[in-house]
């Protein structure tokens, strides 16, 4: 009876806190990882990708796993400190917006190993991320070939570092193909406001844009719907739009933050993760091409793949 009651209590507590109860058997107890996520684990985007990585690490590497989702900016320090205090071996903070909080927690718990995904290099904290500009470059390169109006637009919530890098790479990629191309951006100020994201995309399309790219959470759906309804191209950078919207999807890349996370766990288990900055290039298992629309001419695909190969092997230099 006691076990059943305490199991029930634990399940209820888990539901209330939105925290998954670790279910992995005892042998995993020696290595425990935790994830703190800003959004919902079903957003089909960044948060979901990180969550799936945590699950994959648990299943494949046999580590014990816990997570907290929808952690607001004001609660970041507390959520991270909590896992650090409880002695988790690796605490992932999902997103660059955690950088400052993670730095503070690292000073308070110097023995804790905090990993900020997409974070800016910070003392005492490991950061893993992608070479965002390379991903932007590939998508901009393809958009440059396929856009008839020479105008593409990116939509995001707030101006974060990763987005700036993407826009920078995208613009270079697009103008490398079409010197007159214009890349414009809109900020909706809300990563989840689907209706506003859709209106922002409509507004861009009305002004001659024929390739739109959302860099949002739940808001992605709104942008893709706008593209479908108006018959323009959409691009995905984190999630592959080719699976959900094959007709509107021009070209997607996938950023599999989950795979990146699993790699980080493996490194940490081997004691090789350290506390520095790790950047993954385009074209690894953790991030590369998603679905490319069959309408893209073969020579363009081939050229894009050549660029990707150069990025992967480290010989690519971004045109200025």
């Amino acid at each position: 009876m006691t076990t059943r009651r305490s199991a029930l209590a634990a399940a209820v507590a888990g539901l209330l806190l939105g925290t998954a109860m670790p279910t992995t058997p005892a042998h995993a107890d020696d290595f425990r990882i935790a994830g703190v996520l800003p959004g919902s684990i079903t957003d089909q985007a960044f948060n979901q990708s990180v969550y799936e990585g945590l699950v994959r690490a648990r299943d494949a590497l046999g580590v014990e796993m816990a997570f907290s989702e929808k952690v607001a900016q004001a609660d970041q320090v507390e959520a991270l400190s909590d896992y650090a205090r409880r002695g988790y071996d690796l605490v992932f903070a999902a997103g660059g917006e955690f950088t400052a909080s993670a730095g503070r927690v690292a000073r308070r718990f110097p023995e804790a190993h905090l990993v900020v995904i997409n974070g800016a290099p910070t003392d005492g904290v490991a950061t893993i991320g992608y070479d965002n500009a390379q991903f932007g470059y590939i998508l901009g390169f393809i958009a440059g070939h396929m856009s008839e109006t020479g105008k593409a637009a990116l939509i995001t919530g707030q101006e974060i570092g990763a987005f700036k890098e993407i826009v920078d790479g995208y613009t270079r990629g697009m103008t490398a193909v079409n010197g007159d191309a214009e890349v414009l951006t809109t900020f909706t100020n809300d990563w989840d406001d689907v209706a506003k994201a859709k209106e922002a995309a409509f507004s861009q399309i009305d002004q001659g844009v024929d390739v739109v790219m959302p860099y949002l959470d739940n808001g992605i759906v709104g942008v893709v719907q706008a593209a479908e309804e108006r018959g323009v191209w959409a691009q995905g950078i984190i999630t592959d739009l080719g699976t959900s919207s094959p007709d509107a999807n021009l070209a997607s890349t996938t950023l599999d933050f989950g795979a990146g996370l699993v790699e980080a766990v493996k490194l940490a288990q081997a004691g090789a993760l350290g506390k520095g900055d790790h950047r993954l290039p385009f074209g690894t298992d953790a991030g590369g091409f998603g679905t490319l629309n069959p309408a893209i001419p073969e020579d363009v695909v081939a050229a894009a793949k050549d660029i990707a190969e150069a990025m992967r092997s480290g010989t690519f230099t971004m045109p200025q």
């Binding site: 989840d192 689907v194 739940n218 759906v221």
Partner: peptide, 17 residues
């Protein structure tokens, strides 16, 4: 209106303030 006329699906926190 958000669901039936604008977005045609439910997404978490779609009221967004």
């Amino acid at each position: 209106y958000l669901v039936l006329s604008q977005i045609y699906l439910f997404s978490e926190d779609m009221s967004a303030g």
